[in-house]
Nucleic acid binder design. Structure first.
Lengths: 220, 220
DNA sequence: AAGAAAACTGGACCGTGGTCCGTTTAGCTG
DNA sequence: CAGCTAAACGGACCACGGTCCAGTTTTCTT
């Protein structure tokens, strides 16, 4: 990690537990020195240019540095790592989305019934995702493969089959993916190791999830 | 990618559509030459040793090669990439699990009602996941962070809040994670770009998912 | 205005994943 | 057993992400 730069304001990292409503989740320019701010801007601009010229894959940390006429170290100091840089690029639209559901008009924003808001929320995220797909994927290296690897496909295939028997007239392929998402090792790690949840809770959660998903007669 | 080794049997990669029941999803040793087989075994053994000595992080491709007294190129030729090697290490238990739900005793295996099997399936995967957590995470670099980054936490926090209003007496934090899984950019990419699903279907899927999850009065 | 502390800079440097290609060897054929 | 060929080998090589730190610039203090 980047754990040995004495005078480093630490790009993100709040680590506080109740992150739930800290608003500007990326409001991370507390008091940038003049030159630092200038370089930051240059870097973001350069990165943007590189993306539209060579695609997200062409955004090499070194390339960005060169394109911005800045030292490589500066890029890392500013954004922590590659992921940080890409994330910063997505920051604008991310904030927009946040603002929309925190204080925008219903049904996304407050005012509508929660289920309606939930629906709207998903659609909004879905749409934002497709818009910035390339970037989002680039920001999460290797992510693209996750769902393509044989073992995973095999498991979700099995779930799809079971679902088809349980809820014949649903879109089981999609439902299966939702269920599989719950079983993602990374999620399990996050919940147990980082959030300290006991396994029993996760297991109960699965039982509950299955019950909800396979419930028939929904008056949609 | 590894796209220029003429005589390479291509580690995995079936790319055929109906993977659903191809059984040995990792039955990938069609006809290994004697020395190749020997080296493969050596490599797996070396990797195993390295893991229990220095943890998954210590499994460097070079280190494995050295520990197995084999050239680095050989490691890559055999397993394609780091992920491939780690996956091969997980292969045994993966196959066991597959066998268990394909032809083992109920409720995991055939014979029980689908919903029961689904429940059992999730618990089995959950348990297997915790057993090999370190490896599974190592096989998916960067995955560990996915759920910790502020923007993501913020979104799922929001979903949790909405859920609490919609289904007050459920484990909303967990339910929220399940829902968020459906919105994972990597999944969206997989479904739209690789499976060719239209966005409308994904959107309909979300609406359906929300309906199922927020349905109250479940006779659990 | 001057000096000191704080913050930032840039590029040399490192480790690791991944590729390339000349050399070696297993396994067949006669 | 000699000879042949395709497969396998191995390590030099490269690119990229990430670290370090000596030197520079900015900001604060008095």
């Amino acid at each position: 990690m980047s754990a040995s730069l004495p005078p480093l304001p630490k790009p993100q990292e709040s680590t506080g537990e109740p992150v739930l409503l800290e608003l500007g989740s990326a409001e991370d320019e507390p008091c940038l020195r003049a030159d630092a701010a200038r370089n930051r801007a240059r870097l973001l601009e350069a990165a943007t240019r590189l993306i539209e010229e060579h695609g997200a894959a062409g955004v090499t940390m070194e390339a960005v540095a060169v394109a911005a006429s800045v030292g490589k170290g500066t890029v890392f100091r500013r954004f922590g790592d590659r992921t940080g840089l890409l994330t910063a690029l997505l920051d604008h639209s991310a904030k927009q989305l946040q603002a929309a559901f925190l204080s925008g008009p219903p049904p996304l924003g407050p005012g509508a019934p929660p289920v309606d808001r939930l629906r709207a929320f998903g659609l909004a995220v879905l749409r934002q995702a497709v818009d910035h797909l390339e970037l989002q994927l680039a920001a999460q290296p290797e992510a693209a493969r996750r769902y393509s690897i044989p073992p995973t496909r095999f498991l979700s295939g099995h779930v799809t089959l079971l679902l088809r028997q349980a809820v014949p007239d649903a879109d089981c392929a999609l439902l299966a993916q939702a269920l599989m998402g719950y079983l993602d090792p990374a999620l399990i790690h996050h919940l147990t190791k980082e959030c300290g949840m006991p396994m029993e809770r996760l297991e109960a959660g699965w039982i509950d999830l299955v019950a909800r998903v396979t419930r028939t007669e929904l008056p949609q």
